[in-house]
Amino acid sequence: MADIKAWLRNRFGKSARRAQEESAAASLFKKPETAPIEGAEAERALAERGRRAWEASGVFSVGWCTDVGRVRNHNEDALFILSSEQEANNAAPPFGLFMLADGMGGHQSGEVASALALRAAAGWLLSHVYFPLVDGTDRGADQPSLTDMVREAISHANRVVTRDYPGSGSTLTCGMILGDRLFVGHVGDSRAYLLRVGQPARQLTKDHSLVNRLIEMGQLTEEEAAVHPQRNVLYRAIGQGATLEVDVFTYALEPGDRLLLCSDGLWGAVDEAEIWRLIQEAPTPQQACVQLVAAANAAGGNDNISVVLVETWRGQSQGV
């Protein structure tokens, strides 16, 4: 309990805590029923309502862009974007689902695999997480945890692709946001990055590529990896058999955090510092995405390029 008190102290600070105590203590005695509100209390209540409305608008600001590049003749990347907000009494928290898949398998099957993987995973998450969320279904132990849901959604996509298009494959990187919590599910070598104000960008996902493992072990340098004949060999991908281990993580988001999903057509072509610069300087996430794709094309556009950029609660950290 001492830990919790310390945590509260750290979190709110002394004076903020006092203020919160006062308003909270007042609300302790407030009846759940809505009573007519007058005077100062009315002002406070309105401010509260206003804050919530403000909070609910533009929780996510999303940009995305995908391009075939300059060398290939078809685009095997696929994207899925959904963001949902509610304003109502006891509303469900904001929900966002952002996915990127990079197919492989030649001819038509690469894009078929990525599209199918995306549809299967998105459909699974919508029916198992999103609809119950909107319905207000009771949460309980009978449902898998959200990390298990994300894992199961990607496993489901894997089974569907393996069954319907054996011999093809796809990466799949999924960012699901529920309230202020981010869930990342990942297989392959597409990437998710978290950009937090005042902190260096963090790569959330690990490339499931052979050369990345060899780099981690000190058996290859980055430079050697970039030209290694097996640099495109993945050790995990959708569509490669009945069982698939999926990386799943959760993170607590902070106001102003940005989530970037991208295929190797971006990270393999544009260096990270340039990626961050373009994102920082672009006025909107959409413009950032367009510029990132342009930069990858300027660097040769050897591969399909796909980018999703999600910005959360822009400006909220300043308070209302």
């Binding site: 060398v71 492989m104 030649g106 001819h107 099957s109 097996q230 050790y235 058999g241």
Partner: peptide, 28 residues
């Protein structure tokens, strides 16, 4: 069942054969 290492096709090489999983196993 296993996780075959899966070579991804390079842009300049697009024949069907190069894009197939390079595994000698026949499971599916």
């Amino acid at each position: 069942l296993r996780q075959p290492l899966f070579p991804r096709p390079e842009p300049s090489v697009a024949p069907k054969s190069s894009a197939s999983p390079q595994t000698h196993l026949v499971e599916e």
